[in-house]
Design a protein around this nucleic acid. Structure first.
Length: 847
RNA sequence: GCCGAUGUGGCGAAAUGGCAGACGCAACGGACUUAAAAUCCGUUUUCGCGAAAGCGGAGUGCGGGUUCGAGUCCCGCCAUCGGCACCA
């Protein structure tokens, strides 16, 4: 193909227009107050999840979402919106650092090279980004504000009364002494996910099946002193405020499940013969009369205080501790545990029940202890079966005679205080009883944990914090950005001490204080980048107030600011939850104007290889956008990515599909151009200035209608199909009215911007095609005087007939009954009913 | 195990409860050409009858239901993919 003549000169055209857009800053958009800003226009903020500029370069998955947003951006622009459509780089992160360790090259250098490569690749696809707003999370001018936001979080506490973050200075006097334990950023010494392979700790979210998400190295639990962010304080708001967002329901569900809110009660079980009592969390306080034992998590400190069978218990704890997380989940099928020798007293009936230790109870959830009700909980049932513990039924299910273990809702039995009550009422009543007698209270628990925010890495934002002995203090804002030290050796130390500790000079803050040596996780930079795009050069704030209010504003009281956000499902919980959390803190503190960052979210589907498998180097089925563009051009590439199928669906790549859309674009080209004697492309003689005929006008306006509706619905594949129909109609027409070609070029422009801009110029239309006002459908051209109706007999199509558009139902019915086919099929049957759907069909029911 | 998504020709797919398969790919046939490529035109869900125009039947993962009418709505299954997974 490379040697043969190209079906149209896309290489020359594409380079030409890309250079033009760059030279003229065609897609730059000024901020409110800046020259050229038009306040009369509404705003539209359309955003891609910005990429991590990896060494592998762009793959065909990236441009799928990017093309979708680009089409919307260009379309909204043509409709007269001020469109914010930026791009940047999420450039801190592990791969650059791993690569640096391997090659000895500084991550800043590889990052710069990778960014340059990505940018070149993106520019070759012809995206209408405002490149003057480009940002990079590793740029000190950027991470200065990442650090600044951290300080806002550090200097805030969560007021449970108002459910809002407030400045730490407003902490009530009685709490002021323990201010550090109220901050939204705090230090905790707790078991964390330590990954020796990566030499860093990881967030729960970054650990998959006991292995690191990046690299797949084993992860072990180990206590370390770490920074955490109090995201759990926002758990309820993070759930509730999902309601106002235009997100896929499945993503909302994912987030709700991740937060895992569950209502229940805390119940105190006194330890027999001791002062201590064991607090458990249960969602089924109505089953309290069925409790036959209590279980503590192996890590629960109470175990030390009450274990009578010390030897057995210690041996068991040792076995559990030596298991990695992976083993502990793997071996989950078989329950294990040991009796402590101690007994607890059931507050509702005074029964003495044994206290066990078992690793099916997790220290990190609830109180690290449970009340076991084997008759009504699968796990307790299994455990009781294995160790011969008592099983006592206290709920009768709705069915006939329930199995031995029934965990559903029913009616309380064998429970003096609540006998005969349905589960919901039984819960309420027993909880009230517990509160009254001081044995417990209503509580809410969450699966969500506070966000482990520190990493033992070099290539991340340093914390703007210093340690004066055991006390941490925030650096003053004037010292931001705090840049990392230049290091020759950024390898992990292996001990868990961060690489920054090797920079002895940098480390020393002043005579009495050392700098924090941890760095922030990669999520930090992406938690607020959408704000920076609003005002990327601002030196005084993350984003200027006016710019933030304008771009992040929303109509009709909607909560979110970005009007359309497109990216992959892999960020369904992590990035999207973290960003929402930061945004809410900033909102509470008055730094942003809306409570949610992203009003509408859409996930693009994964593109599979030609073989229907996931693309991977190992399978050798990776498609490189550069190759496709070199062979077919950027317009074909863009168009194919959108023509493959619905945006949100997973779909396989097909090179013959690219050829198909490429042929379509060449047909568009030849509508306007033809080859002369010398083989040069010149304007076609078939292009006419005459008024278009009825059929073409109809095709044109039907296309305006369909393409407009489809872009609004992000249904790009069907929009393209409609344009193909339009082009087929023009191809078959004896002459091609310029008025119709003009409409075609405008509709196609967001999809294939280079080709359409070139043909626009050839046809001599004013200005840029991209600047032309989006066409409006005139419905008058769509109406026909006559319509074809389908005539069915008993639901089967038997005849078609042409009737006047405004024929009455009665007329249509009579006409249908008289057609020969219908008579034939009716035979001697009686017509029982006739349904007429105007303009569509007639169904005659006979029998 | 739980939650969610998907299932339509040889393939990617399309169808406010109203003609299933638009549009594209592939395949086949034709035109143009010395020839090929490119381009243009046509056929293409499937089965039966027919030389043909045509006529008739079946058909949207499987089984039921609602409806004049179901790919679409309801109930019950199956398969594939994604997420969570001892969360008390």
């Amino acid at each position: 193909m490379s040697d043969t003549r190209k079906p149209y000169p896309f290489d020359a055209i594409e380079a030409k227009w890309q250079a033009f857009w760059e030279a003229n800053s065609t897609f730059a958009i000024p901020n409110p107050g800046e020259p050229g800003f038009n306040p009369a226009r509404p705003k539209y903020y359309v955003l891609d999840m910005f990429p991590y500029p990896s060494g592998a370069g762009l793959h065909v998955g990236h441009p799928e979402g990017y093309t979708a947003t680009d089409i919307v951006a260009r379309y909204k622009r043509a409709l007269g919106f001020n469109v914010l459509h930026p791009m940047g780089w999420d450039a801190f992160g592990l791969p650059a650092e791993q690569y640096a360790i391997k090659t000895g090259q500084h991550p800043a250098i590889t990052t710069r090279e990778n960014v340059a490569r990505f940018k070149t690749q993106l520019k070759k696809i012809g995206f209408a980004y405002d490149w003057s707003r480009e940002i990079n999370t590793t740029d000190p001018g950027y991470y200065k504000w990442t650090q600044w936001i951290f300080l806002q979080i550090y200097n805030a506490w969560f007021d449970p009364e108002t459910r809002r973050a407030r400045p730490i200075a407003e902490l009530p006097a009685e709490s002021a002494a323990s201010a550090d334990s109220h901050r939204l950023a705090y230090v905790s010494e707790a078991p964390v996910n330590w990954c020796p392979g990566l030499g860093t700790v990881l967030a729960n979210e970054e650990v998959i099946d006991g292995k690191s998400e990046v690299g797949g190295f084993p992860v072990v639990r180990r206590p370390m002193r770490q920074w955490k962010l109090r995201i759990t304080a926002y758990a309820d708001r993070l759930i509730e405020e999902l309601d106002g967002l235009d997100w896929p329901e499945s993503i909302k569900t994912l987030q709700r499940n991740w937060i895992g809110r569950s209502e229940g009660a805390e119940v105190a079980f006194k330890v027999a013969g001791k002062e201590e009592s064991i607090t458990v969390f249960t969602t089924r306080p109505d089953t309290l009369f069925g409790v036959t034992y209590v279980v503590l998590a192996p890590e629960n400190p109470l175990v030390d205080l009450l274990a009578a069978e010390r030897e057995n218990v210690e041996a068991y704890r040792g076995r559990v501790a030596s298991k990695s997380d992976l083993e502990r989940t793997d071996l989950a099928k078989e329950k294990s545990g040991v009796f402590t020798g101690a007994y607890a007293v059931n507050p509702v009936n005074g029964d003495r029940i044994p206290i066990w230790v078992a690793d099916y109870v997790l220290m990190g959830y609830g109180a690290g202890a449970i009340m076991a009700v084997p008759a009504h909980d699968e796990r307790d049932y299994e455990f009781a079966g294995k160790f011969g513990l008592e099983i006592r039924q206290v709920v009768r299910g709705p069915g006939p005679d329930a199995a031995e273990c029934f965990s559903g809702e029913g009616v309380a039995i064998n429970s003096p205080l609540i006998d005969g009550l349905p589960t919901a009422e039984a819960k309420t009543k027993i909880t009230a009883w517990l509160e009254e007698h001081g044995f417990g209270k209503k509580t809410v628990n969450y699966k969500l944990r506070d966000w482990l925010f520190s990493r033992q890495r070099y290539w991340g934002e340093p914390f703007p914090v210093a340690w004066r002995g055991e006390r941490h203090e925030a650096l003053p804002e004037t010292e931001l950005p705090l840049t990392p030290p230049e290091l020759e050796d950024f390898k992990p130390t292996g001990s868990g001490e961060p690489p920054l500790a090797k920079a002895k000079e940098w480390l020393r803050y002043d005579e009495g204080a050392l700098r924090e040596t941890n760095t922030m996780p990669q999520w930090a930079g992406s938690c607020w980048y959408y704000l920076r795009f609003c005002d990327p050069q601002n030196a005084k704030r993350p984003a200027g107030e006016e710019a933030e209010r304008y771009w992040m504003g929303a109509e009709n009281g909607k909560p979110g600011g970005v009007d359309l956000y497109i990216g992959g499902t892999e960020h369904a919980v992590l990035h999207l939850l973290y960003a929402r959390f930061w945004h809410k803190v900033l909102f509470d503190l008055g730094h942003v104007s809306k409570p949610e960052p992203f009003q509408k979210l859409v996930n693009q589907g994964i593109i599979l290889g030609e073989d229907g498998q996931k693309m991977s180097k190992a399978r050798g089925n990776v498609v490189n956008p550069d190759d496709v563009i070199a062979q077919y051009g950027a317009d074909s590439f863009r168009l194919y990515e959108m023509f493959m199928g619905p945006l949100e669906q997973m779909k396989p790549w097909s090179i013959t599909g690219v050829e198909g859309v490429s042929r379509f674009l060449a047909r568009v080209w030849r509508l306007v151009m033809e080859e002369n004697q010398e083989g040069a492309w010149v304007r076609s003689a078939a292009v006419s200035e005459a008024a278009p005929g009825k059929a073409l006008l109809k095709a044109a306006h039907a296309s305006i209608k369909k393409v407009t509706e489809d872009i609004e619905a992000l249904s790009f594949n069907t929009a393209i199909a409609q344009m193909m129909i339009f082009v087929n109609a023009l191809t078959n027409a004896p002459e091609r009215p310029a008025a119709c070609l003009r409409i075609l070029l405008q509709l196609l422009n967001p999809f294939a911007p280079h080709l359409t801009e070139e043909l626009w110029a050839v046809l001599g239309f004013e200005g840029l095609c991209a600047d032309a006002k989006w066409p409006v459908c005139n419905e008058d051209y769509l109406v026909e005087d006559e319509v074809e109706l389908v005539v069915q007999v008993n639901g089967k199509v038997r005849e078609r007939m042409i009737v006047k558009k405004d024929a009455s139902n009665a007329e249509v019915e009579n006409l249908a009954l008289e057609t020969p086919k219908v008579r034939e099929h009716l035979g001697g049957k009686t017509v029982r009913k006739v349904i007429v759907v105007p303009g569509k069909l007639v169904n005659i029911v006979a029998g």
